[in-house]
């Protein structure tokens, strides 16, 4: 596969799957305002994914569309990070996952806005405004969890401990990524890792949270290897396209 298409899919798939998880929370939020806020974030992410899918389809030039890429691939053909597919176990899990990925997206898009690839630079610049707000919101929630009740601190701690094992993958470059790095197209993940660490440490400090000591990490999303949850996500997400292949909207 063309390196550029693969790199586009890594970014777009992660945004799409995270967006789907947030959309699952629609009508299940703790209260109306939070419900709307979550779906707003989901819409921002799907907007970013859509424009990248359309561009990837254009490069592939095999007659497939952005929608085909989003909805008509098999499990091992999605390259999203495994963190984005982790379930909404409780509100703390949803928000800790969001905080980790918002922080990642913020620094990733900051770097990509300087990419030599003008399409990526434009998408990154546009989405960065949205992600800046997402990060502000999820950071505030982390701080609120940590300084709220014993229960909120415990739930946030559990979520951090459960999700930490998927964070290192964000910074492990795929072959496509490294291939594009030399051309000034993809973002330097080592640099982003440093910034991510600094931001997470800062927010953890304000939230009375600790970085987990267990260093065990899971990888695979960028190679199309996913967690057990992923098949369920696809079967729900692709239900409509499978049942009504010619559906239009």
């Amino acid at each position: 596969m063309n390196s550029l298409v693969k790199y586009y899919l890594e970014i777009a798939d992660s945004a799409l799957i995270l967006s789907h998880r947030l959309a699952e929370n629609s009508s299940n939020g703790p209260f109306l305002e939070e419900d709307l806020a979550c779906t707003n974030v989901a819409l921002d992410l799907i907007g970013m994914a859509e424009s990248i899918y359309n561009e990837a389809a254009k490069i592939q030039a095999d007659g497939s569309t952005g929608d085909d890429l989003a909805y008509r691939r098999s499990e091992w053909e999605y390259y999203n990070n495994v963190l984005s597919e982790q379930p909404n176990t409780d509100f703390a899990h949803l928000m800790v996952r969001q905080f980790f990925l918002d922080t990642y997206h913020y620094y990733l898009l900051t770097e990509l806005s300087k990419s030599k690839n003008s399409f990526l630079a434009a998408v990154a610049t546009k989405s960065l405004k949205e992600v800046t707000y997402h990060l502000r919101r999820s950071s505030e929630w982390m701080i609120r969890f940590g300084n709220g009740t014993d229960e909120s601190l415990k739930r946030a701690t559990d979520a951090v401990n459960n999700l930490w094992r998927y964070t290192e993958e964000l910074f492990k470059a795929s072959e496509a990524d490294l291939d594009l790095r030399d051309k000034g197209i993809s973002a330097d993940l080592e640099l982003i890792k440093k910034e991510w660490d600094a931001k997470v440490n800062e927010v953890f400090y304000l939230s009375n949270l600790k970085r987990p000591e267990n260093q065990f990490q899971l990888f695979g999303g960028k190679d199309g290897k996913h967690s057990e949850h992923f098949g369920y996500i696809l079967s729900e997400m692709q239900y409509l396209t499978n049942k009504y292949p010619e559906a239009q909207w």
């Binding site: 209260f31 109306l32 305002e33 939070e34 709307l36 806020a37 707003n40 505030e140």
Partner: peptide
Amino acid sequence: SVHGYDKEMAIENARDVYTR
């Protein structure tokens, strides 16, 4: 109107509910 535990949450909820 919106609900919110604190100032930050109130202004963020207001943004998400009323200025989309």
